[in-house]
Design a protein around this nucleic acid. Sequence first.
DNA 1: CCGCATCCGGGGCGATACTG
DNA 2: CAGTATCGCCCCGGATGCGG
Lengths: 200, 200
Amino acid sequence: MVGDRWTLLIVRELLIGGACRYTDLQQGLPGIATNLLADRLRQLEEQGIVAREAAPPPVATTLFRLTPRGEELRPVLRALGQWGAPLLLEELPDDAVFRSHWLLLPLQFHLADHAPERPPVTVEVRTGEEPLTIETVDGDVRIRTGAAAAPDVTISGEPPVVAGLLFGKLDLDTAIDRGITVDGDPAILLRLQPNAAPVP
Amino acid sequence: MVGDRWTLLIVRELLIGGACRYTDLQQGLPGIATNLLADRLRQLEEQGIVAREAAPPPVATTLFRLTPRGEELRPVLRALGQWGAPLLLEELPDDAVFRSHWLLLPLQFHLADHAPERPPVTVEVRTGEEPLTIETVDGDVRIRTGAAAAPDVTISGEPPVVAGLLFGKLDLDTAIDRGITVDGDPAILLRLQPNAAPVP
DNA sequence: CCGCATCCGGGGCGATACTG
DNA sequence: CAGTATCGCCCCGGATGCGG
């Protein structure tokens, strides 16, 4: 049911963004043929994994959303993502395509606020074609696409290096050596990274 | 790396049985074309997921085994299996093929000994083409193919019903209604099933 | 624009046959 | 036992068209 080409990637797009338009999915899945996207969506709908709904009046369009049964695939994407994490650090080929929002799901899985009692922080991540914002909201970590109003720290660079730094696989000096730039207080990252010692 | 057709199924076979011969894999993957099996094994080897080794002298043959990196795919198979578990209870089409040992991995994942202080028990499961044996060994649950010497309880029937009973999705009466036969003390199952109240 | 349907090569795939 | 060789098919990728 979910083993065909593209199928789990479509599910991932919907896990990331909630309800998506057809063209949103096309944007998020560079290289997919439009007939395949239509086919897969139809199959997923028949199998009760995806539901299609009419968008609210102002914009008349169709939205695709995961059903509860579809949401249950989150652990599958999590396990696959965890297994593939080491590959994320490898350099990307020159013709590689990358979408910033692909980082949303792994960041949601792995970041946590280790010092919820401290004042909230905001991190802006500039990699790929659009910025990402990470902010702490009373103990939770929220990640979204878009720029931050007043980030405490901004990270820019190539996706593999940025990801390596955020996930704690690369230390700050190594990451800077490999070409990223950090604006603001890098110590904030320690509060969010996995396996980081809790800030005392 | 693991998204091609058959690839994760090959990994599953190796997770179940440890080192496997080429023909063992063919048996466990009914329907796979021999050229595809060879292709996949070669790709998996190149990617460091599978290693091939020469068997010890008496039998001169090649064995395929997961590398540590390959073993790390266990959580992926676990997540996929958990998601697919409800489908396991649906009736099989008449032409369906089923291999008993496919139950080994889910049983390893979901069964536990909730009363390790009691004397060990043995369950024999007869479904598919060969029997399975479940036994408790000081707190652990061991599952293997083959018949048991002196089982405390024996379960026979169609795979969906047997699986439903073992995983606690079907209660005993329903399972018997749906055609399984139970020899011995069915209460033993409560000690092993997931979410079962611990035996006092 | 948005959500497809259609058409058209190329290659992955499935079945069978064959072999050191 | 562990593959290789071959052939046909259908899935897939890419491009274009098209009604709402």
